[in-house]
Write a protein that binds this DNA or RNA. Sequence first.
DNA 1: CTCAGTGCAAACTATTTGCAGATTT
DNA 2: AAATCTGCAAATAGTTTGCACTGAG
Lengths: 132, 132
Amino acid sequence: MDKSDIKQAGLKITKPRIEILKLLETSEKQHFTAEELYQELLSNNIKVGIATVYRVLTQFVAAGLIMKHNFEGDQCVFELDRGEHHDHMVDMKTGRIVEFHDEIIEQRQIEIAEKHGFTLMEHSLTLYGEFK
Amino acid sequence: MDKSDIKQAGLKITKPRIEILKLLETSEKQHFTAEELYQELLSNNIKVGIATVYRVLTQFVAAGLIMKHNFEGDQCVFELDRGEHHDHMVDMKTGRIVEFHDEIIEQRQIEIAEKHGFTLMEHSLTLYGEFK
DNA sequence: CTCAGTGCAAACTATTTGCAGATTT
DNA sequence: AAATCTGCAAATAGTTTGCACTGAG
């Protein structure tokens, strides 16, 4: 149940929060900019302010419910954190985003970090190109 | 010689361009935000406007002289394109940036792209953590 | 001399914040 | 009722643009 996640994060269960989480959970599309979420809510006749969308997203990121990505371009995208780490391929023409995971790369990163005396906390790998 | 690079890019050889390129070429620091470059130029008693710095950087990126990176946070960083591809490790405490290159990871990315019918054009891999 | 380049200030875009009223618990 | 949350509008931060002047070729 989604609502309990909100509560567990120490946040009150409000309409904007429920609806944003629902969108991220049930949409076919998995990655949204704040603006896209905002527009989507409006289309669904849910009145919210864009400021609330940003605030809620920030809180959800802090709570570990969702993740925030900084792809190329000027907007960040958000997606539900389903617990399975993955990286992204971004189609530069269409904006389509596909996820992937590769153990060899993951492993290599750890080795490289060790070799450099670097405590690896997170990483971001994004491939840019075009789907045929 | 740096000036010829500017000319080859179809740009006139002007003070701001020469100085920005020189900074990127000769500084110990390899990665700069637009603001840092601007401040550095001012400290060296070179009068430029921040708008010019942004314009010149954009032109240099288009010309392939420099590269632009979108690490976490809100500012982009620029570095000279020395032709040798590399990825980055960013120290989240100090901001220190160290470059690395790993053939296995590079290779893996190509394979993954192929497997997904994706024409890989560029990629960005950044490790976040802390140097010991 | 001509056209590209520059500085300045104003414009823009994405995001954040202050505040008074509305909602959750 | 108390504390959090919300919408609105104003504020920010980074970056871009319009314009009249300057400087490179």
